[in-house]
Structure formats: structure tokens, C-alpha cells
């Protein structure tokens, strides 16, 4: 086993997250899929940090975590306010900007 296993696992997890974003209709589940994609990228960063022998990758992964936390807070607040006005958490029902 080499570190390539981690990279392939991260690629597969990223793909599952991306497919979930495309397939699922619940906005909260879409957000979870985005979190999964961010996590898999974190795994790649940490693997490459170990490979290159520097901690810069770990620091960038830390930044990714912070940005993900901020994004989740704002995104869930938006979902809450949309649910309050539209009574729905489905991304199909948010279509007023469509036409």
C-alpha cells in the first residue's frame, strides 16, 4: 500500500459528493454533499503534506475547515429563511429567478 490509496479514496469520495449535489433535491443534503467534497480535498491536502514533508498542506486544510464552517453557518441560515417564506427545503422550489 502506498499513499496513492489515500488519493484514490479522496477522488472517489469527491465524486460521490459531486454526484450527490447533482442528484439530491433536499437543500440540506446538498450541503452535506458539499461538506463531503471539502473533506475529501482535505484528505488530499494532508496526504500531499505528508508526501512532501511540509506542514503547509495541513495549514491549508485547516483554512478549508474554517471556511467550510463559515459556509455552513451562512448556508443553513439561508435555507432557514427560504423555508420560512416558501415552506420548503427543496432546491426545485426556489425558482423565482428562473425567468
Amino acid at each position: 500500500m502506498t499513499i496513492t490509496n489515500y488519493l484514490v479514496l479522496a477522488a472517489i469520495l469527491f465524486t460521490i459528493g459531486a454526484v450527490g449535489v447533482l442528484v439530491r433535491r433536499n437543500a440540506i443534503v446538498v450541503f452535506m454533499c458539499i461538506e463531503l467534497m471539502l473533506n475529501s480535498v482535505n484528505l488530499t491536502l494532508i496526504t500531499f503534506a505528508r508526501s512532501t514533508g511540509t506542514v503547509e498542506g495541513q495549514v491549508i486544510a485547516l483554512f478549508v475547515m474554517v471556511v467550510a464552517a463559515a459556509e455552513v453557518v451562512i448556508g443553513l441560515a439561508i435555507i432557514m429563511s427560504i423555508y420560512r417564506t416558501r415552506r420548503s427545503a427543496s432546491v426545485d422550489d426556489v425558482n423565482l429567478l428562473k425567468y
Binding site: T2, I3, T4, L7, V8, T52, V55
Partner: peptide, 14 residues
């Protein structure tokens, strides 16, 4: 691509 590209990547370690 990753499997081929990182095949003989050295693992220096931290």
C-alpha cells in the same frame, strides 16, 4: 490519473 501520477511519489514524512 492520480494513481498513475503519484505512483512513485516519495513519501518524505513529517
Amino acid at each position: 490519473g492520480v494513481a498513475r501520477g503519484a505512483e512513485d511519489l516519495p513519501v518524505i514524512g513529517l
